[in-house]
């Protein structure tokens, strides 16, 4: 078994209730597009490409932090620091509660890629009998203080005052009218609503079993020193620490897959 433990910040620029989920700018919810930013698009981005980064927000970058083969953690594994990417426009599919209740939103469609150098592992979450994208709700809400620490948040209570101080300092320095407008808008929302309605330690738990033929394993240089199997891969993750100011959340989890090692035989 090959186990990849990953974590990092993602961005999802999604309008929130009572705005329509497909609202392009955000009006009455707690998320919004700033002046000069592109329209909201609902897409979950785990890498900086395509993300709309706001100053003083987290760095969007979900990566593999630890790799284990069997029970053994492998240092300097070729998948160490691999990027974890959601493809096919995966989004939290809530639709104002029409598709799923708050806290049950699935990631839909779910299409995962782990990539480092020439190695690429990719799988889609589809129904094995119909081929349609699978719609599987989250397993619900879970408190995870370890994840909060892993996200680098020592004291959640200090997040908003610190962010406000940083934005105010920047506002005092810049003469750029668009940047000033963006900073002022963020400051107004932070003062009124903080980072949003959900405490940092509350997140959604996911467990998706990925099977079927919709997978890609590419290892042209045989760096993995073994073979990744095509039977079920299991993706588990916790997503929380919602930052409504930066439109970011923190994800931590594991991807496990069958693996036949040339060194360790079947593990």
């Amino acid at each position: 078994m090959l186990k990849l433990s990953f974590s990092g910040w993602l961005q999802c620029r999604l309008a929130t209730d009572p705005d329509p989920t497909d609202d392009p700018r955000g009006v009455s919810g707690w998320t919004y597009a700033l002046a000069g930013e592109p329209d909201l698009d609902r897409v979950i981005r785990t890498q900086p490409l395509g993300a709309t980064i706001r100053p003083f927000g987290p760095t969007v970058d979900v990566r593999v932090r630890r790799v284990s083969v069997g029970d053994q953690e492998i240092d300097r594994h070729p998948l160490q620091s691999a990027s974890v990417v959601l493809l096919s426009g995966g989004a939290f599919e809530g639709r104002n509660g029409i598709a799923s209740e708050d806290t049950e939103e699935p990631i839909f469609p779910f299409h995962l890629r782990v990539e480092n150098g020439g190695i690429r592992l990719e799988r889609q979450f589809r129904d094995i009998s119909t081929g349609e994208w699978k719609f599987q709700k989250s397993d619900g809400v879970e408190v995870n203080n370890d994840a909060v620490r892993e996200a680098g948040i020592d004291n959640p209570d200090e997040l908003v005052p610190r962010r406000i101080a940083s934005l105010q300092e920047r506002l005092a320095q810049t003469a750029d009218s668009l940047e000033r407008l963006q900073l002022q808008t963020r400051l107004r929302h932070l003062a009124a609503r903080g980072l949003g309605p959900v405490p940092a330690f509350i997140g959604l738990r996911y467990r998706y079993t990925l099977d079927g033929p919709w997978l890609l394993v590419s290892d042209p240089q045989h760096e993995l020193a073994g073979t990744v199997g095509s039977s079920a891969w299991v993706f588990t993750a916790w997503i929380g620490c919602w930052d409504g100011d930066a439109l970011c959340g923190f994800m931590t989890g594991e991807l496990t897959m069958p693996f036949v090692s040339r060194v360790f035989s079947l593990v």
Binding site: P18, P24, R25, V27, S28, Y32, A35, G36, S177, L178, L181, T185
Partner: peptide, 28 residues
């Protein structure tokens, strides 16, 4: 209006958004 392409400045669009939010709040 929501966008600058509709003939308002970025700053005006932000003010209009606040008005819209206020009106929607009353509607709720």
């Amino acid at each position: 209006k929501r966008h600058v392409r509709e003939g308002v400045t970025e700053e005006e669009a932000e003010v209009i958004r606040q008005w819209e939010a206020g009106i929607l709040g009353v509607a709720r």
